[in-house]
């Protein structure tokens, strides 16, 4: 158990380290701007006075290390700074939107994970059948489609032609749960389609890999039935790769929402990020980036931790 514990600890430490590195990069990215940030943002016509005032407002007159320390310290306390565009606290802007984005991603995950795993297993079991080929070709196509293409196709059919769902998912703050659900259908469907295709392909590949191993052949030669081979011999060993696939795709989901939110005008974090990038509202961009990146790092770390923990060689060490 000692080596397992050590590995897990190492992986967690690596996660914390990447989180730190990510925050440094996000912080430094602003400093990469050639010349002076404040000057560049205000344009050439700004007077020296305005620039100086702006620099003070950004805190650019402080040494970088102090600024970084302050930024992180405030961030950890929930103070994300102030937006340049409308002078409102970023925490206020982010708050509700973060919830919206997470619930959108969660809904998509809820739909796609079971479906993708199920389809992936079926495809692996009946590999090279017409079913597998059909599934594979459709998945390959779905992976290749840009999200906005899928989104607009869905809008064209389900909201314009059939009028089943609204094409725009802007939520009123007092929207009822049913309303929220109805407005989320198309965004969730868009997100799920791409993720399902991705996840299904990966599940299929790792299962096929597994089914080719000598201990599966041995199980066949021992007269074990097909269903028992799948559930008793293949699945316990497939756990690690499948967990990995799921977590990777969840991480993708969190990022993939950006485009979908813009298409459906869904009031989420992604849209805020895109708007802020267009307005060059750097403090907001930094805050949103950090939130997205942290979620991504967390999910990736979780995936690795789970796959380490489900390795039988590490669960039952020699000795």
């Amino acid at each position: 158990m000692k080596s397992l514990f050590k590995l897990l600890l190492q992986r967690l430490a690596l996660g914390v380290l990447s989180l730190f590195a990510v925050s440094v990069i996000i912080f430094l990215a602003v400093g990469m701007l050639p010349g002076d940030v404040a000057q560049a943002m205000l344009g050439q016509s700004a007077t020296a006075q305005t620039v100086a005032a702006f620099r003070a407002q950004l805190g650019l007159d402080l040494p970088p290390l102090t600024r970084f320390g302050q930024w992180i310290w405030h961030f950890l306390q929930g103070d994300l700074g102030t937006s340049l565009a409308n002078q409102r606290p970023i925490a206020e802007l982010v708050g509700a939107r973060l919830g919206n984005t997470l619930s959108l991603a969660a809904l998509a995950a809820l739909v796609s994970v079971p479906l993708a795993l199920f389809l992936g297993m079926l495809a692996a079991l009946y590999r090279n059948s017409w079913f597998d080929r059909l599934l594979n070709t459709s998945a390959l196509s779905a992976v290749s489609f840009p999200e906005f293409f899928v989104a607009y196709l869905l809008i064209l059919y389900f909201s314009v032609k059939l009028s089943w769902f609204p094409s725009i998912s802007n939520l009123a703050p007092d929207a009822s749960f049913g309303e929220v659900l109805e407005r989320s259908v198309l965004p969730v469907a868009t997100l799920s389609l791409v993720v399902i295709a991705q996840m299904m392909r990966m599940t299929r590949a790792s299962l096929i890999n597994l089914l080719a191993s000598p201990y599966i052949e041995m199980a066949r030669l021992k007269g074990i039935s097909q269903s028992r081979i799948i559930f008793k011999h293949a699945l316990p060993n497939a756990l690690a790769p499948i967990v990995n696939v799921v977590a990777l795709n969840l991480a993708y989901l969190v990022v993939g929402v950006v485009v979908v939110e813009v298409v459906f005008v869904y009031p989420g974090l992604g849209q805020l990020l895109v708007d802020s990038v267009a307005k060059r509202d750097i403090p907001v961009v930094q805050a949103c980036s950090l939130i997205f990146a942290a979620t991504y790092v967390l999910l990736n770390t979780l995936a690795d931790v789970l796959s380490i923990a489900s390795n039988p060689r590490l669960m039952h060490p020699k000795g």
């Binding site: 000598p214 201990y215 041995m218 021992k222 008793k232 011999h233 316990p236 060993n237």
Partner: peptide, 16 residues
């Protein structure tokens, strides 16, 4: 009819 394979290490399921 039973079978004994060349590589026992690869022919036993590591999970059981």
């Amino acid at each position: 009819i039973a079978y004994v394979a060349q590589s026992a290490a690869a022919s036993f399921n590591p999970a059981h």
